[in-house]
């Protein structure tokens, strides 16, 4: 298949940046989206031009490194799919595909389609952990955990921290990400001990970094490649109220 690409090119964080048009030909419908860009980059390198910079790592849909805002959707038009797991059969022959970086004040563009997502790391560092004194390995069954809570915690922990929620949200809010991280701990006995301090610290850091406020549009849930539920946002709100009142 042949495609017309409109790709955001920006040489450095301070560069103004612009969209550049590219044509790619004879792309297999079985190729992944990132393989399609690999092919484009090979052609650009052969021509002596600078290849398109983009984030990627595992290419198995689990690491959270790939991003790309494709035709108006974070990770492209297919639901519950990361860009690396998106295949060209989801596009039409001859289609124009617009490829942009995540856009949010706390996610500045480093180069082309790569944004700096270390804001998420800062949020995790502010409280997204449990404090454990090292020692012998405790017996796995010594702390009873409700099955429903274990499942919900695991669902929340499926968040790969890719930032699609921020990219999708009209307010560039990080509430889905932060709520998933707050929830995975708040639901489990080990996480409850620091639950109050955690939610307050993570929300404060999220605000300080300049993410927007959630207005419950639920675009984040619709676009999340791991289908993290907005019920986590409500849980975080509950945790926050408890922390403030407690």
């Amino acid at each position: 298949m042949d495609l017309k690409l409109k790709i955001w090119r920006q040489a450095s964080p301070t560069d103004k940046g612009q969209f550049v048009d590219y044509d790619v030909h004879n792309i297999s419908t079985d190729a992944s989206f990132l393989e399609m860009i690999d092919i484009l980059n090979d052609e650009l390198i052969e021509k002596g031009e600078r290849p398109v910079a983009f984030d990627h790592d595992c290419r198995e849909g689990i690491c959270g490194m790939c991003s790309l805002y494709i035709n108006g959707h974070p990770h492209g038009p297919e639901a519950a799919t990361t860009t690396c797991q998106l295949h060209m059969r989801k596009f039409k022959d001859g289609e124009t595909v617009v490829i942009e970086p995540w856009r949010a004040k706390p996610f500045p563009v480093i180069k082309d389609l790569i944004v700096d997502r270390s804001a998420f790391d800062e949020i995790i560092q502010s409280g997204g952990y449990i404090s454990v004194t090292t020692g012998g390995v405790p017996d796995g069954n010594s702390i009873p955990i409700n099955k429903e809570h274990a499942d919900l915690a695991m669902d929340a922990a499926a968040c790969i921290g890719c930032g699609a929620c921020v990219a999708a949200c009209k307010n560039a809010s990080a509430m889905l990400f932060v709520s998933a991280k707050v929830s995975q701990f708040a639901l489990l006995p080990q996480g409850k001990i620091e639950a109050h301090d955690r939610v307050k610290a993570m929300v404060a850091k999220m605000d300080e970094l300049g993410f927007g406020n959630c207005t419950n549009t639920y675009a984040c849930e619709a676009e999340c490649p791991k289908e993290i539920s907005v019920a986590n946002i409500a849980r975080m709100n509950r945790e926050f109220i408890k922390a403030k009142l407690g």
Binding site: Y69, N71, T215, T217, Y218
Partner: peptide, 22 residues
């Protein structure tokens, strides 16, 4: 604050809001 959080918008943005009037 929400406007400030995204100084540069997207060239193409699909309809993603699940609560339409939000």
């Amino acid at each position: 604050q929400n406007w400030v959080s995204r100084p540069k918008g997207y060239k193409k943005r699909a309809w993603m809001e699940q609560s339409p009037f939000s």
